[in-house]
Amino acid sequence: MQFSTRILVVDDDEEIRLLLDEYLTKAGFIVSTAEDGVEMELFIKANGYPDLILLDVMLPGDDGFTLCQRVRRDSQVPIIMLTAVSDETDQIIGLEIGADDYIAKPFSPRQLMARIKALLRRVHVHGDKSEDLPPRVISFGDWRLDTISQQLSNKINQRSYEMTGNDFAMLMLFLSNPNQVLDRDSISIATRGREALPYERGIDVQISRIRNRLGSTKTFPHYIKTVRGNGYILAVPVEYGQ
């Protein structure tokens, strides 16, 4: 199967760049590479944002965290961070600043391919799309979510925020299953395409970030509640509209 999906690999290790270029190209993707942030930004300036970025954390000059934050100012392009195998801090920081997933080095190309396909399915870059499209507008508590523009708007102060790809997917999961307890494996499968790893904190970090965004009021003190030993639940009424 051939795809028109464009992937940009940003890594200062030439061997990794060549390996991923060859492997992903054989899989049918259109692959470009950059060895640092300067080359990455030159590519984006000349070609626009790709469909997905593989972004190494440890880069000469601006590191992957800085580049991820810079991309997130302008684009919701899916980003997979490539991190050091033993450094959980890298993984948590990457998710906090807007990365959609991470994979620890060393990794197998097949493992990376599974992550890429799962992420691209979630953002509808390619693959089968659901026949049942979500409603255009979802209202819950003090908030309103436009599922097309991915704009989250507060109905009280009228402020709007654009949700990142993975945060949007997680919020949609809760909005599609209100008042139902979702365990960590179910959340991870739906938003990352895999079960949660032991001691993985990425899901908790994301939920904390979404909770902070939603805030609390006397009427809605808790949007997403923790159910000890079981998972999380969206505990507010949800209304669907067009």
Rank of each mutant, 00 (worst) to 15 (best):
E14I: 01
Y240P: 04
L8K: 08
L42A: 13
A46W: 11
L55E: 10
L175K: 00
V181K: 00
D185H: 15
A190T: 09
P109G: 15
M170T: 07
R115M: 13
L133E: 02
Y232A: 06
I148Q: 07
G98H: 11
E39K: 13
G229K: 11
D100P: 07
I138F: 00
D56Q: 13
I79V: 14
D62K: 01
E162N: 04
A169H: 03
F174H: 05
E41L: 11
R228C: 04
K45H: 07
E22C: 06
G28R: 11
P109M: 03
I16K: 11
G141H: 11
P134E: 14
Y102D: 01
T164E: 00
L175R: 00
R115N: 15
L24S: 02
T83F: 14
Y49T: 10
I148H: 04
I103T: 15
R192G: 12
I103Y: 11
L42V: 06
R73Y: 12
F3M: 12
L55A: 13
L52R: 10
G141D: 08
R110S: 15
R136N: 03
F168E: 00
D132Q: 08
T89I: 12
E39G: 04
N179W: 05
F29Y: 12
R115E: 06
I97D: 15
D132P: 07
R211S: 02
G141V: 02
D146F: 01
E14D: 07
I103A: 14
D204C: 03
C68I: 08
M170I: 06
L175H: 06
S86W: 10
T25F: 06
V31C: 12
E88P: 05
M81A: 14
D11W: 05
N177C: 00
L152Y: 01
L133K: 08
K129W: 08
V181A: 10
R194K: 15
I156R: 01
S32G: 02
S130I: 05
I189P: 01
G61V: 09
L52T: 09
L175G: 08
P106Y: 04
D21K: 06
I79P: 07
P60L: 03
N47S: 01
S216M: 14
Q242I: 01
G48C: 10
D36S: 05
I30Q: 11
N179D: 05
D204Y: 09
L59E: 12
H124R: 03
Q151R: 04
D21G: 03
K105R: 14
Q2D: 12
R201S: 12
I16P: 06
D62H: 05
D204E: 13
D100N: 13
L24N: 09
R73K: 07
G94T: 15
L42H: 05
N177M: 00
G127E: 08
L20F: 09
E195K: 13
V57Y: 15
M113K: 15
V71M: 05
D36G: 09
I187F: 01
S108R: 14
D21M: 13
A84M: 14
F220L: 14
P135V: 07
A169E: 08
